[in-house]
Design a protein around this nucleic acid. Sequence first.
DNA 1: ACCCGCATGTAAGTCGTTACATGATTCT
DNA 2: AGAATCATGTAACGACTTACATGCGGGT
Lengths: 188, 188
Amino acid sequence: MATTLGYAILGLLAREALSGYDVTQRMKESVGFFWGAGHSQIYPELARLEEGGLVAHSVVEQRERPDKKVFEITPAGIDALGEWVMQPPPRRPTKDELTLKAYSVWLVDGGEAARLFREEGRRYEEQLARYEQIRGWMEEEWADDIGRPETPRFASYATLRRGILYERGNAEWCRWLADAVEGKPEGV
Amino acid sequence: MATTLGYAILGLLAREALSGYDVTQRMKESVGFFWGAGHSQIYPELARLEEGGLVAHSVVEQRERPDKKVFEITPAGIDALGEWVMQPPPRRPTKDELTLKAYSVWLVDGGEAARLFREEGRRYEEQLARYEQIRGWMEEEWADDIGRPETPRFASYATLRRGILYERGNAEWCRWLADAVEGKPEGV
DNA sequence: ACCCGCATGTAAGTCGTTACATGATTCT
DNA sequence: AGAATCATGTAACGACTTACATGCGGGT
C-alpha cells in the first residue's frame, strides 16, 4: 500500500512520535545507514501516509521555535507495517558504484588504483569502527533488551550487526584489491 | 560526462563489441550482479554515448535473424572510462529493504520472522554457492590472468570476490537473526 | 496455433536528487 | 554581520520501472 520510504518512516514512528524535521534527521543517522531520503521526499510522503490513515498529526506550538507538526502512527499504520515486514522483499540488483569501477580497473595504472581502493577501504574501516563502538555501547546499556526480539532495541541492534558485516566485507575486499593491483601476492 | 549506467555499458564494450540486446543480456548476468538496467534504459543510453563520441556502431546484417547494431567503444570512450574509474565514488546510503524490514521486526511474531529470514538466508547461500563455483572455475581456467591486474579477467575476478563477501555476510546475518528471533542464544 | 528467443525501440509513470523559497532564533 | 539550527514546503530534473509496440524465425 505505501512505498518503501513510507515503511521506513512508519518504522521510525512505531518507536516514537516525530515531526517531519525529526524524521529527516533520523534518515541521516540510524535508519539512514540502510535507507536514505531528503526532506523534500519526506514531507510529501508523510502527507500521503496521513491520507491513507496510517499516521496522524497534531500541531505543537513552540515558543522561540517554529511550530511543528508531530506525527504519530495509527493502529492501522502498525498493522500495515507488520504485514509489510513479513513479505519477502523483491530481489533487486545491488547497485554498487565501487564494484562497477573495479570492473574496469584493468584499464588504469595499478599504483593509482591501489591508492583509490586503499582510501575507500579506510573509509569503510572508519565506519566499521564507529559501528563497533555503538555496538559495544548497546551491548552494555541495552543488555536486557538485546535478548528480547519483541523490543525495538533488539531490532536496532540487529540492523547494526548487518551494518558491521557489510562494512567489514567491504573493507576486507578493498584491502585485498589494493594489494592485488599492486602485484602483491594474496593471503586469501 | 556520462551517467553511471553509461560507464557500466562502457565497461562491457571495453571488453568486446556488443549489440544493445547483448548488453541487456550481460546486465542480467555478470555486470548485473552489481549494476542492473532494462533494455528500455540501455537503448537510449547507447544513443547518448554515441552522441558524445564514446561509442560507435555499425549495422550487421544477419540471415534468419533481425539485423543488429553492434557497438564498439572509441578511444575517447576508453579515456573517459579510465578517468571515471579513478574518481572516488560519492557515498550514497545503501538501500537494503531486508535490513529495513529487520528494523521493524520487533512488531511481528518471532517464529514467523524466523521463517522469513531463514528463507532469505537460503537464497543468499544459493547465490553464494553459484559464485563459489564460478570462482573455482576462474581460478583453474584463468589462473594466469588472475594475477595480472591489467587484464579484464582480473577485474571480473575481483568483482566476483566482492560478490562472495557480500552474499556471505548477508547469509551469515540472516542465520544469526533467524536464530535470535526464535530465542536461541548466539554464538557471535 | 502458440510460445520463445532475437532484436529494437517509445511512452507513461514513479522514485529520487538538487535546487528554489521562506523565516525565526541562537551561536560565533 | 554571518552562519547554523529549527521548521516546512514546492519545483524541476534525472534515473529507473513497467508497459506498450512491432516483427521474424524456430521449436512444440
